[in-house]
């Protein structure tokens, strides 16, 4: 069942150097109770996508086209008041740096309490009890003590857990996690990813996991959406996409990763660099770096071709397949 759908989303930023085309048509669907990975390199628009969904874009950003369907509403058309109702309550967001996202002046318990109060828990004692329960749910040791400490007294991993507890206080349907483990160490990252998987399994929460790390996607997500220069190049279920990547960019990314057995060999590289958002791109954005580029790749945007029921890739190379 589709819970949230992003359709043809275009976002641009106005800057001193001209308009930056951050998103140039993003489409994907998030189903209930699944973890969807939005993956791509710096500047591909993955964070902007996450932020547009809940209307947290910077002042100089503008959504020029597209819809974000959530239940029966288009989130992009909602008033700020209605959006605030959805933000936090139904769709919550966690960020890369929990130290910035938590208010340094209030204890963890107070901050969770604030969220609970907004959800009808008026009694102090009730709030405290729920807060303790939530801290326990996210696997923080000794909640009775942590509920009264300030964010700076926690380690990075503990802060991220506290942040997740705060999100859970509102019982959201969707959590958008923007690089939630990038600032953390590998062993702590494993803990947080494990927690996200547990929330998805036990509470049927859907998660949009924004990351640059293909390994994290492979181990955490069911669905994956690969972005390049503000567009989706390939999407599908994690099993099929990692087993048989179709788009030349996805293939390039996967083969650029050093891994067991790559020792002594040259790593596959994708030559060139990501196009600047200032360029208006007519054809496929990846064409200038693509080893298979044909003349039409520079002229036209390729449409999605399906590979089985679970995978789609946008590349002209696939087209002959469709004619069989």
């Amino acid at each position: 069942m589709t819970l949230l759908a992003v359709e043809n989303l275009h976002v641009q930023f106005s800057t001193p150097f001209g308009a930056v085309y951050a998103l140039r048509g993003i489409d994907f669907e998030l189903s209930k109770g699944e973890i969807l990975g939005l993956v791509g390199e710096t500047g591909c628009g993955k964070s902007v996508t996450g932020r547009s969904i809940i209307g947290l874009l910077d002042e100089n950003a503008e959504v020029t086209q597209g819809r974000v369907r959530f239940e029966n509403a288009d989130l992009l058309q909602l008033s700020e008041a209605d959006l605030r109702e959805i933000r936090g309550n139904r769709i919550a967001m966690i960020f890369q740096d929990p130290a910035v996202a938590l208010n340094p002046l209030f204890t963890i318990g107070q901050q969770i309490g604030d969220v609970l109060r907004a959800h009808g828990a008026d009694l102090r004692s009730e709030q405290r009890e729920r807060a303790l329960q939530l801290l326990n749910d996210v696997g923080l040791p000794d909640p009775a003590q942590l509920v009264d400490v300030y964010p700076h007294q926690l380690s990075g991993g503990q802060q991220q857990r506290a942040m997740i507890a705060m999100c859970l206080a509102a019982e959201p349907d969707v959590i958008i996690a923007d690089e939630p483990t990038t600032a953390l160490d590998v062993t702590i990252q494993a803990q947080i990813l494990d927690l996200l998987r547990m929330l998805q399994r036990d509470r049927e929460i859907s998660v949009i996991l924004i990351t640059h790390d293909l390994g994290i996607v492979a181990e955490t997500c069911q669905q994956v959406v690969v972005l390049y220069a503000g567009r989706v190049v390939e999407k599908g279920s994690v099993e099929t996409l990692f087993a048989q990547p179709q788009h030349p960019y996805t293939r390039g990314l996967l083969s650029a990763l050093p891994r067991a057995g790559s020792r002594g060999r040259e790593l596959n590289v994708i030559s060139g660099t990501v196009p600047s958002g200032l360029e208006r791109i007519k054809g496929c954005a990846f064409a200038p770096r693509c080893g298979f580029a044909m003349p039409r790749c520079h002229e036209q945007q390729p449409a999605f071709s399906a590979f089985g029921p679970k995978q789609q890739s946008a590349c002209f190379l696939h087209e002959p397949l469709n004619h069989d």
Binding site: V186, I188, A190, A218
Partner: peptide
């Protein structure tokens, strides 16, 4: 540490060792 490192291979089943604490 090895077990915590995410690898881009969803088919790999493995016993994850998740270290407690920090």
């Amino acid at each position: 540490l090895l077990s915590s490192t995410p690898l881009p291979d969803p088919s790999r089943s493995r016993q994850r060792i998740i270290l407690p604490g920090t």
